[in-house]
Amino acid sequence: MMRPRFYELVREELDASERLAVVTAEIGTTPIGPHPRHFNVGIREQLMIGVAAGLALEGYRPVAHSYAPFLVERPYEFLKLDLGHSDLGAVLVSTGASYDASREGRTHQAPEDVAALAALPGWTIHVPGHVEEMELQLRRAFAGDDRVYIRLTEETNHARVDGDGGLIVLRRGSPGAPLALAVGPTLAPLLEAVADRDVTVAYLTTVRPFPRAELRDALGDGTEVVLVEPYLRGTSSAAVSAALEDRPHRLLALGVRNEELRHYGTGSEHRAAHGLDAAGIRSSLERFLG
């Protein structure tokens, strides 16, 4: 469970480092507990980002935390200007991801968050697929001065993948085989979907900056790329195209559909409805690869 572990780690860091400051906007962060450098500004998300930028200006390492739509979308221009344009650093940690808040409805879902943030320069974006990967990325973010987004989710892979978040080849297909690239928690259903296929399987959790050279290396002589992202479909399509701009290729981008689902229910029902469970991915692969 990423969210409770995040609260534990933030609390430990608040106690261990005088540099860390936490800014929240009424998000049920009781587990962090009261602390002189934990500022709950109330339900004021624009203020949350402004305050984080001010703390960064004063030498603190701010961590801002809320549901993804209230952390990225509502105060978007404040991210662009107060942090980005001002060249100030912060760690944004979201919860809810694309459809973890399935019963809460559209207001609490943000499949667009990565695409929106990726449109702004200078952000490192982590999409961990396992709690231990999140822990590594969070600890590194605490120690930095840059702008980092960490996207927590209730979806999880079966085990952590060792590495630093960059692109890792987990399974090598025959020369020229298609490359299937899983981002974060899409790895588990992807592995199930390609169990009997000759494909190279790679894994990525740090999606920005996008690892162009590593993608080319993983693809080798292949010409087909299957990109599976747990947020808005096609978010990294342009990055893949840019990485392969000098060579003919075909790309299948899977992810959360842009059309509104307009259903409540469970996260796994949403995953299936977007074609992101193993059966959905398998079906898309059959259409694309034959």
Binding site: R103, E104, R106, T107, H108
Partner: peptide
């Protein structure tokens, strides 16, 4: 709150008669 119910934890004006704005944020 179920997948096929129009009633969720935040209301949707397109799904529920009498709900005039979709709210929750």
């Amino acid at each position: 709150g179920t997948f096929d119910s129009p009633l969720g934890h935040h209301p949707d004006r397109l799904l529920v008669p009498g709900i005039e704005i979709s709210s929750g944020s």
